[in-house]
C-alpha cells in the first residue's frame, strides 16, 4: 500500500511539472500581455508601461521567469496577481467556494437522478423507459451546455420570471432559500451532461452485478426482487462508480466553468476568464495548477478508496 501510494504521488508530481511547463509556455509565448489593458488610458505613456513590465519582471527571458516561478512554487509561494498585487492563493481562495457549491449541488442531482435512471434501465432492460433513457442520454451529451443555459435563462428568467438569470444570491438576502433559488438553474444545467454519463455507467454496472453469482444465490434464497436489487445489486454496482466519480472530476470542473460564464456565477471560471482578459499570468497559472492538483487528487483518492473498499482489486 505504501509503495503504491509513493509511486502514485511521485507520478503525480511529475505530472504537475509537465502541466506547469505546458501552461507557462502557452501563456508566455504569446504577443501582447498584461500591459494591453492600459494601452487606451489617456495618461499612461509607453514609458509607464515599460516601467511596469520591468517591475513585474516581464522583461526577463522566459526560462528565467519559469524557474523563478517554479522555485517560489516549491516553497509554497504561488506568486502575486499582476493586477491587484494580492497573493494568488488568496485570489483563488475567494472564488473556490462558489465553484465547489455549483459542482457539489450538480453532482448530488446527477448522482441521484443518474443512479435511478441507470438501475431502472438495467432492471427494465429493452423497455420503452430504457430506450428513452439511452436516446435521452445521447441527446443530453450533444447539447452545448452554455446554449442550454441560455435557453434556460430565456424561458425561466425572461419569459416566466421564475428564476434569477444570474448571480449567487440577492444582496441583503443571504438566506439558504435565496442561495437555493439562484442555484436551481445553473446546477441543473451543469447536471444534465452528468446525469447522462452517470446513468449510462450505472446501467452497465448494474447489469454486470445482476449477472453475478451471488445475486442468483440471493434470488434462489427467495428474497423479493426489490430486496435483491436494493441490497445486493446496487451496492456492488456503485463500487466501480467510485472510480468514475474521480475520473469525472475534471469534466465536472470544466462544465462548472462553462456554466459560470453563462450565469455570471462568481467562481473560478469567471476568475479565469477575467484573468485571461487582463493577462494576469500568475492567477491563470495558479488556476491551471490548482485544477491539475484537484484532478490528480481526485484520481488518486478514487484509486485508494476502491482499494480500501474492495480488497480483491490488486494495487498495481
Amino acid at each position: 500500500m505504501t509503495a503504491f501510494l509513493l509511486k502514485r504521488v511521485l507520478q503525480s508530481l511529475v505530472l504537475l511539472v509537465i502541466v506547469s511547463i505546458i501552461g507557462f509556455a502557452v501563456l508566455n509565448l504569446i504577443p501582447g500581455g498584461p500591459m494591453a489593458q492600459y494601452a487606451l488610458d489617456p495618461g499612461m505613456t509607453q514609458d509607464d508601461m515599460d516601467r511596469l513590465a520591468e517591475q513585474l519582471g516581464l522583461n526577463r527571458p522566459i526560462w528565467v521567469q519559469y524557474f523563478d516561478w517554479a522555485w517560489r512554487m516549491l516553497q509554497g509561494d504561488w506568486g502575486t496577481s499582476f493586477r491587484d498585487g494580492n497573493p494568488v492563493t488568496t485570489v483563488i481562495g475567494r472564488h473556490v467556494f462558489a465553484t465547489f457549491l455549483l459542482m457539489g449541488s450538480s453532482t448530488v442531482i446527477a448522482v441521484a437522478i443518474g443512479t435511478w435512471i441507470g438501475i431502472r434501465g438495467a432492471t427494465h432492460r429493452y423497455s420503452i423507459f430504457d430506450y428513452a433513457a439511452t436516446i435521452g442520454a445521447m441527446v443530453a451529451l450533444s447539447i452545448p451546455t452554455f446554449w442550454f443555459g441560455l435557453i434556460g435563462i430565456y424561458v425561466f428568467s425572461l419569459k416566466l420570471g421564475w428564476l434569477p438569470a444570474g448571480s449567487m444570491y440577492t444582496i441583503g438576502d443571504g438566506s439558504v432559500l435565496n442561495y437555493l433559488h439562484h442555484l436551481i438553474m445553473p446546477s441543473t444545467v451543469l447536471a444534465l451532461v452528468h446525469i447522462a454519463i452517470w446513468s449510462r455507467f450505472m446501467r452497465a454496472s448494474t447489469l454486470d452485478a445482476i449477472s453475478q453469482e451471488f445475486v442468483k444465490t440471493a434470488r434462489a434464497k427467495g428474497l423479493s426482487e426489490r430486496r435483491v436489487i436494493m441490497k445486493h445489486v446496487v451496492g456492488n454496482a456503485l463500487l466501480p462508480m467510485i472510480t468514475l466519480a474521480g475520473v469525472q472530476l475534471p469534466s465536472i470542473l470544466t462544465g462548472a466553468l462553462v456554466t459560470e460564464t453563462v450565469f455570471t456565477w462568481p467562481g473560478m471560471g469567471r476568475l479565469f476568464l477575467d484573468s485571461l482578459g487582463y493577462s494576469d499570468y500568475p492567477v491563470v497559472m495558479g488556476l491551471l495548477m490548482f485544477s491539475a492538483i484537484l484532478t490528480i487528487l481526485g484520481n488518486l483518492i478514487a484509486d485508494i478508496v476502491v482499494a480500501l473498499v474492495d480488497p480483491r482489486i490488486r494495487l498495481a
Binding site: 500581455g33 487582463y278 493577462s279
Partner: peptide
Amino acid sequence: SAVMWGDF
C-alpha cells in the same frame, strides 16, 4: 484584447 492592445 491582450493581443490587440499590446504591441499591435
